[in-house]
Design a binder for these strands. Structure first.
Lengths: 156, 156
DNA sequence: TGTGGATACTTTAGGTTTATATAGTCACTT
DNA sequence: AAGTGACTATATAAACCTAAAGTATCCACA
């Protein structure tokens, strides 16, 4: 059994990561249950992005925003298309690209489901004071930009 | 287009959730890459739990700790068993229960891979000061207990 | 001694995710 | 004008994940 020079500083960072993951999973579980019977979480994420971009979004744009691989989006968009909520539209100027857009039905659907989901989120985090929310939000904003840099740097 | 009474307070909570999810996904992506070729993240999570419990863990205990459904664990443990890293052991006192334990090979494997993963985490979060880590860790701890209560309460 | 209810794991069906491979398209170079 | 390399979307296999239904076991109580 190799004696393991685990410094307090390392231990604290592991603890940070475990708690971050736990919060994410707890919230995810609750919010998924709120959407159930409506649509899946990844499908909702795509719809919510499309709703903000009436001009449509390409697979790569969605991929960056949602931190999901483009290969993955193929299937999600397939299912949204099958439900009549979204549609593909090839870019005539660059036939490699495909714009994904909401259908009218998809837009109606968003008008219903986005406020509902927003309400679920507000309720789930309702136990925090507005002040605590502001602080945590700012800290996580800072953390996410740090992580972006870190990951980007590690790739090179 | 229904005009949408989205209060600043709600908006802030949605922002908190989006940033939490973004941090989780960024970190997950990086840490998964560090484990690749070794084992998958869910398999690692199970191994790390087993390593702390030499007496073994039941599916339900693992399910609670990892926030993963028991049905899901069946497959993960199957794969660990196939790799010779873990084994099932029926509880003679209650034959409904199964203890999952590390094999010797599994223990050796953990001795190697856990410190490596710990190092990856420490490096990924290395950009934060020890102080910032402590604060964020405490805030997330508080958030996770609040979410647990909230979810539990919602179930009733 | 049954019998009903609870518990523990497995199974099934539908989705999601990653990694990898493939093919079409475009821009730029030679 | 053809070739190279990069970008975009798709296809596939293996793993993961949830919810819900199914099976075996245990326990309390009549």
């Amino acid at each position: 059994m190799a004696d393991n020079p685990l410094t307090p500083s390392e231990r604290a960072r592991v603890g940070l990561w475990l708690r971050l993951a736990r919060c994410y999973n707890l919230a995810m579980r609750d919010l998924r249950a709120g959407l159930r019977e409506e649509c899946t979480m990844p499908q909702f994420d795509v719809l919510a992005q499309l709703e903000r971009s009436p001009e449509g979004l390409t697979f790569s744009a969605l991929s960056e925003k949602l931190l999901v691989t483009a290969g993955n989006l193929t299937g999600i968009v397939d299912r949204l298309e099958k439900q009549g909520l979204a549609r593909r539209e090839t870019n005539p100027a660059d036939r490699r690209q495909t714009f994904i857009k909401l259908t009218d039905k998809g837009r109606e659907y968003c008008d219903k489901i986005i406020p509902q989901h927003t309400h679920d989120i507000a309720k789930l985090f309702g136990g925090l004071s507005d002040n605590a929310v502001q602080n945590l939000r700012a800290d996580l904003e800072q953390l996410s930009t740090m992580l972006s840099k870190q990951v980007e740097h590690a790739e090179t």
